[in-house]
Simulated scan of single mutants.
Amino acid sequence: MKILVCVKQVPDMESRFRPDGGGTWFEESDLAFRMNEYDEYAVEQAVQLKEQLGGEPEVTVLSIGPDRVNEAIKKALAMGCDRGVHIQDPAPQGKDPWQIASVIATFAGGEGFDLIFTGMQSQDRGSAQVGVLVAELLGFACATTLVGFAFADGVVTATRELEGGIKGVARLRLPAVVTCQLGLNIPRYPTLPNIMKAKKKEILGVAASGLLQEEPVAATARFYPPARKGGGVVLEGEVGSLVEQLYGILKEKTTVLR
């Protein structure tokens, strides 16, 4: 059995974001990066399955991006994955989800993976499309938004969180793709011995240009922060005085709007 986990390196959500010069992505010079939170659940579930099956399955972790994504790959290796694949692309943000899925599917199609784990969505784009598009391109069964996972006799039992907090259960025969979200598990912290072991594990580098087979179907024209608005007004005093002040402000604003 061969397992693939797809991870993405995203900006830390505590960073200060501002558009880059082209206005189509973030200025990255001041950003810190980390593994996408939803992908951590995917890595953990893949490693748990490997442990359940006696360590027999090989778990490969794949990430697309510039050299810095190796840090996310190394974290997944330290969590228990066996080998890494770095799809080298200096500007993956310029590709839409269809193209990203095409790159993954082209690589995966030649490797004979039985089960592919991805995060439900990325924290920077939030499209929630890549996992299902990979399944479509490969012709695999697919279940999304997993909050429960079980595997036995070649069948995945996926508990999914649906609209309104309703849970549904789907059963998929391999090969399959599943997308993971909060509530599925608690990702482990890499221990120091496993971090040291991860340094010796293989990370294969592959150029994205040799795998991309699809033209974009969508593009970001421009994004920008919302316009600054005026500050609020704090009213102080007795209740009667406050009512008079508020009435005066509302009357003034209404006159301006007319």
Rank of each mutant, 00 (worst) to 15 (best):
E136G: 15
A143F: 06
G139Y: 03
L172K: 09
F140E: 05
T145M: 15
V155W: 06
G164P: 02
L174H: 09
T144K: 01
D153E: 14
T144S: 08
F149Q: 15
V156S: 11
A152Y: 02
G168N: 10
G164K: 08
I166S: 12
T144Q: 02
F149L: 14
A150M: 01
V156Q: 09
L137Y: 13
T159I: 14
R173L: 11
T159Q: 10
A152V: 05
D153V: 05
A150L: 06
G164F: 00
F140Q: 01
D153A: 15
E163C: 07
T157N: 13
G148K: 15
A152G: 13
L172S: 03
E161D: 02
G168A: 12
V155F: 03
K167L: 09
V147K: 11
L137M: 15
G139H: 04
R173A: 12
L172H: 08
E161V: 14
A170E: 15
L146E: 02
G139V: 10
A158I: 00
F140V: 05
R160N: 01
L137H: 13
E136Y: 08
G168R: 09
E136N: 12
T144M: 10
G154Y: 05
G139S: 13
L162F: 02
A152F: 03
G164A: 03
G164N: 03
R171G: 02
R173M: 08
F151H: 06
A152K: 14
R173D: 09
E161I: 14
L137V: 07
R160L: 08
A152W: 03
R160E: 04
A152E: 15
V156T: 02
L172I: 06
A141F: 13
L138G: 00
I166N: 13
L137K: 15
L138M: 08
V147D: 04
A158H: 00
G168S: 09
A143T: 06
E163T: 11
V156D: 09
L138T: 05
F149W: 13
A150V: 04
C142A: 11
L146Y: 10
L172V: 03
L137S: 13
I166K: 14
G154F: 11
A150C: 06
T157G: 10
R171D: 11
A170G: 07
A152R: 10
